[in-house]
Amino acid sequence: MIELNRICKTFRVAQRSAGMREAAKALFRRTYSEIHALQDVSFCIGDGEMVGYIGPNGAGKSSTIKVMSGILTPDSGSCVIDGCVPWRDRQAHAANIGVVFGQRSQLWWDVPVIDSFELIRDIYRVDEGLYRQSLDELTELLDLSSILRTPTRQLSLGQRMRCEIAASLIHRPRILFLDEPTIGLDAVSKLAVRDFIRRINRERGTTVILTTHDMQDIEALTERIILIGRGRILLDGTLDALKARHSTLRQITVAFTAGTPSPADRPLPAGFSLISASEDRVTVAIDTEIVSVSDAIEGLTRGVDVRDLSVAGQSTDELVVSLYEEFRI
């Protein structure tokens, strides 16, 4: 159980303009600007939930993860995770969580992966039997057997990420924080990582909190998303509800035989707006609050020699862009 209540965190950042003169001035008098990284952030995540935490760069995602994992001490507000206050009971809390920073490695660069795993075993005081069991499981699920004896520096990014995730799960944490776990991975590795995260969540009941810019991650993994922008929580709900609320628009594309009457010949009624038209293809956006999809298709195709027809909803990427626009973040 994760409970955040009105967490605030402000950073003070030294500011100066470019140029030598300014640099010299800054030596003596610094002006600071305050960055409100987190403002009244509150949410609650139950055991075994899988939550996508999204927002543009600099919105406060990583700061929130750092507060929840005990790295940052917030200025005010409370955070209780399974009975621990992360920054106060840091070591006890650390044994319960696993953290993957997608852009940083926790493996020792020059030694085989298995050596890193063994050191992590000792750091977390995992007993030998449990370690064997964890390792076997992770090796099988993440397909690590062929790379365990390779030094980290020789692994590809995809292989390394699989090892990073395994390293964060050796001590069987109840909560897993993933900070951009699929960043820079190829399609195959992405799918493998996603599949694994889903299984860990389902089979071990691990609570997963995931930050990402990859909307396919969100779509594939999480039911609930929390949107943060400029340090504030803007939305907290299921992906489906969000989609239903935000994407009343559908795109209908009609392909027809060139030279025959086009759907765009007639003036379009209310609820329709023309996106593009060529001699054999017309794309129209409709607002499903004004006109239903079936009525729209009927209206568009009447008297037209239709070769192909497609209806597309808003993609999650577009949804997020429209959310960012809506909240001006």
């Binding site: 994992s69 005990g70 790295i71 006890a92 650390a94 953290v99 920073f101 940083r104 750091i123 977390y124």
Partner: peptide
């Protein structure tokens, strides 16, 4: 380089 963040999420001093 953020190595210290990693240290802070481990259950040791």
């Amino acid at each position: 380089n953020g190595e210290f963040d990693r240290i802070l999420v481990r259950p040791r001093s």
